[in-house]
Structures are given as C-alpha cells and as structure tokens.
Amino acid sequence: MSRFIQLHILTSYPPSNLNRDDTGRPKTAVVGDCTRLRISSQSLKRAWRTSDLFEAEFKGHLGTRTKEMGVEIHKGLAQQGISEKNAREWSRQIIAEFGKPKSDKKTDKNEDLHVEQLVHFSPAEISAIEDLVARLGTTEKAPTADDLKLLRKQHSAVDIAMFGRMLAKTPAYNTEAAVQVAHAITVHKAEVDDDYFSAVDDLNNGEDDRGAAHIGELGFGAGVFYLYLCVNREQLQENLGGDADLTQRALKALITAATKVSPTGKQNSFASRAYAGFVLAEKGDQQPRSLAQAFLKPIKDTDTMGRAIKELLTRRDNFDTVYGPCADSHVHFDVERGTGSLEQVAEFIAA
C-alpha cells in the first residue's frame, strides 16, 4: 500500500467571490512578485465536509464542530424537568471535559454555556453526551467523575480523521490530520475588480424620486486555480480505527468533493460553481512535494488552462529527472482533451 497520495487540481472559476477577507473582498496572495487570487484551505475543507456529497456518503460518520454544545445539553436537561440551576451547572461540567467554558456569568445569549474554542465532536462523543443527559434526567443526580469521561480517542468521524482536531485542554484526544490542503492560488496574475450595483424600489413610481433604493459595491475575481492536496493513507486508516473499507470510501469522496464542490461564498450573486478541468493523482512512499513552482512565473497565454496543464506536467517530469521518480504511479484526467475520468482517478487513489 502506497503511503502518500498527492492530488494536483486545476479549476477555472468565472467571476466570483468564493472566499472573502476582512473587508469583504476576495482573498489574495503575492506569488512570483505579482498578486494572485487565493482560496484558503479552511474555506475549501469546510465546503467539502459540509457538502451534500459527504452527508449522503457518511451519514453517522461525520462530526459536529461547535462552541454551543452546552446550550444543547442545557436544553435537553430542561426538557426533562431538571431545575434551571442544576441544568446550567451540569451542562457546564459536561462541556468542561471538551474545552474551557466561558465566564459563568449568565447572559441572555447563554454565553456561559459556550466553550472558548470550537470543538469538533465525533458522533461517538455526541452519542455519549446524549446518553448521559438522558440518564441525568432519570436519576436527577449530578454527574460523577466516571460519567464525565466522554472523550473518545477512537471514532469513525471521517471529517475529523481527514482534517484533524485539536483539544488544548486534553491533547491526548487530539487527532493528527491525514489530509493536508494547500491554499489554492491562480496560476496567473489576477486583479480584484469591483462590481458597482444599485437596486430599485418596486413601489417607487419615479414621480417624486428616480434614485436607487440601494447602492453597493462588491469585489470579485476570476481565474484558473492550482490546488494541492497530500493524503497520508496510513494515517487516515489509523484515524478511522483500521477500517479499510471506510478509508477507501473516504478517499473516493475526497477526490469527488475536491473536484466538484465549490466554496459557498457569494454563490447567489455569481453562481460560480465549477468542476475541475484537470487532475493529476500520484501514489508512492516518496517524500511528497507540491508542484506550485510550475506557476511561480505567472502564465500569460490566451489558453490559460492548456498552458497550465503543460507547465504542471513539465514540472513533474523535471522533478523526476533531478530527484528520481517522486511517485511510484500516477494517473490523470483532462477535460480539455476529454481523456481519463473522475471514476478512474477515484479508483486509483482508493486501490
């Protein structure tokens, strides 16, 4: 079994604002002394793990990432008739096993029932919490130290197995991510443009005021993005408790999501959904390497996708010439030429 799976993906996005910075404009990066559009790995991973594709494939095998589990616990206890004082106190005791609760000062927003950092709960842990809440409703006694042993090191949460989790309070229950995802960048120089728009009031007959009811401005950009993923297959299978079948399903779902699922940012405004135009998949035990260097010099060509594919494969071949084969085997599909298929790549990485 090859330890590492590497995926090199080229996707062309039309005008879009898939991943915004703190000012609401598309994220960028300076690469090769020029500005590129960028989609963060966090944005990509969230789009994949919350997609309908993952939900359909891994029902019962997906975690929940939240600060508000304490609110749900409190609600469950209250519904069983536990007093407000006990429900709040016991909820804080339970969530304290996963992270540091916020100030114990009660607020209208129940902030005292939140943990300070996002916690990724596995289905097994959520089930253990639900069982404990039901038991407390029956006994009406405070949870014991044994009751509060809710963390699970072994679980079958595919998203946690892929992308990891960190619990600052209890590092023994951390999960090392088996999938590394780079920030996607355009293979060419790109500018952020501004869309100046106005909206008209439907009930304004124009007799007294012909002006717009709303005026706004929205940043956007377009381009061909290069995305690199590295999967440690051994780590993924270990994270999934040695389940080889679930590991294969996870790998197939990952390549499908990475090639078909777009981040949700401003989709209603731009409908910028896109499928990957080219994917190169590699397997082997060799030290992984990105092929981002292929685009250090920005592409200037009317056939941007075709040129990007050529530069990517040339860089792969040059690495092999200098270092020796950087993978044992590889396969690709190319939408431009109508060769290969997603199914073929998925079977290749899962085999």
Rank of each mutant, 00 (worst) to 15 (best):
G81R: 08
I82N: 05
I82F: 05
E84I: 08
E84N: 13
K85F: 09
N86V: 05
N86S: 07
N86Y: 03
N86R: 06
N86Q: 10
A87S: 15
R88H: 08
R88D: 12
E89D: 14
E89C: 09
W90K: 08
W90N: 09
W90R: 11
W90Y: 11
S91I: 02
S91W: 02
S91G: 05
R92I: 14
R92F: 09
R92Q: 11
Q93Y: 01
Q93K: 08
I95A: 05
A96E: 01
A96I: 04
E97N: 02
E97I: 02
G99P: 01
G99H: 00
G99C: 00
P101G: 13
K102H: 11
S103Y: 08
S103T: 10
D104F: 00
D104C: 00
K105R: 09
K106C: 12
T107R: 00
T107D: 02
T107G: 02
T107W: 01
T107A: 02
T107F: 00
D108I: 14
K109E: 14
N110P: 07
N110S: 15
E111I: 12
E111K: 13
E111N: 13
D112Y: 12
D112M: 13
L113V: 07
L113K: 07
L113D: 06
L113A: 11
H114P: 04
H114C: 07
E116G: 08
E116V: 08
Q117F: 12
Q117S: 12
L118C: 11
V119M: 01
V119S: 00
V119H: 01
F121T: 15
F121R: 12
S122A: 15
S122E: 13
S122V: 05
P123N: 06
P123S: 03
A124I: 04
A124T: 07
E125Y: 00
I126H: 11
S127L: 09
S127D: 15
S127K: 15
A128K: 04
A128F: 03
A128H: 05
I129Q: 00
I129F: 00
E130Y: 03
E130R: 10
E130Q: 09
E130S: 07
D131M: 11
D131Q: 10
L132M: 11
L132Y: 11
V133S: 02
A134P: 10
A134M: 10
R135N: 12
R135L: 12
L136N: 10
L136F: 08
L136P: 07
T138V: 13
T139S: 01
T139W: 00
T139A: 01
E140P: 08
K141P: 00
P143D: 03
P143H: 03
T144R: 04
T144K: 01
A145T: 13
A145N: 13
D147T: 03
D147M: 04
L148P: 01
L148F: 01
L148Q: 00
K149Y: 15
K149T: 14
L150K: 03
K153G: 11
K153Y: 15
Q154P: 05
Q154A: 15
H155Q: 15
S156G: 10
S156D: 13
S156W: 09
S156A: 14
S156Q: 14
A157F: 06
A157I: 02
V158Y: 06
V158H: 09
D159I: 08
I160F: 05
I160S: 04
I160C: 05
I160H: 02
